[in-house]
Nucleic acid binder design. Structure first.
Length: 114
DNA sequence: CTTATGACTATGA
DNA sequence: TTCATAGCCATAA
């Protein structure tokens, strides 16, 4: 009996990151460190971001716009055309924002295993 | 093998 | 509050 069910690292770190991001429900956001933590290593937060950059995007089933910094901040200046575009997408999904332009993690942060 | 880079995070000033 | 630095480890050359 194998219980790895395809979650094996043979798919590469990137595919694994996509798999986690894909599990983020609509109206919810997660931090890079949170995703890395779900994968079992909260120290690889940088690679999660790097994987998002290399990700096919929403068209590939990877809603990388739902991934934000640990303080709720969006990616600086090079996301989908600007953090403002990403913010619009999140607001449209129902994500709350603070007056500083940050995601309200207290309300909308995704919890793995929920 | 080593070196360089990076959509991060934590800490300190 | 913002800015700078260190540590983190996978991928590329």
């Amino acid at each position: 009996m194998r219980m790895d069910s395809g979650h094996s690292s043979s798919e590469g770190f990137f595919s694994r990151a996509y798999d986690v991001v894909r599990q983020i429900p609509r109206g919810r956001v997660a931090t890079y460190g949170q995703i890395a933590r779900v994968m079992g290593d909260g120290r690889k937060a940088r690679f999660v971001g790097f994987a998002m950059h290399a990700s096919p995007g929403m068209s590939g089933g990877v809603p990388c716009h739902r991934v934000v910094f640990a303080d709720g901040r969006l990616a600086p200046g090079f996301a989908f055309g600007g953090p403002e575009a990403q913010r619009s997408l999140l607001e449209e999904e129902g994500v709350s924002f603070t007056g500083d332009g940050r995601v309200d993690l207290a309300r909308c942060q995704w919890e793995a295993g929920l």
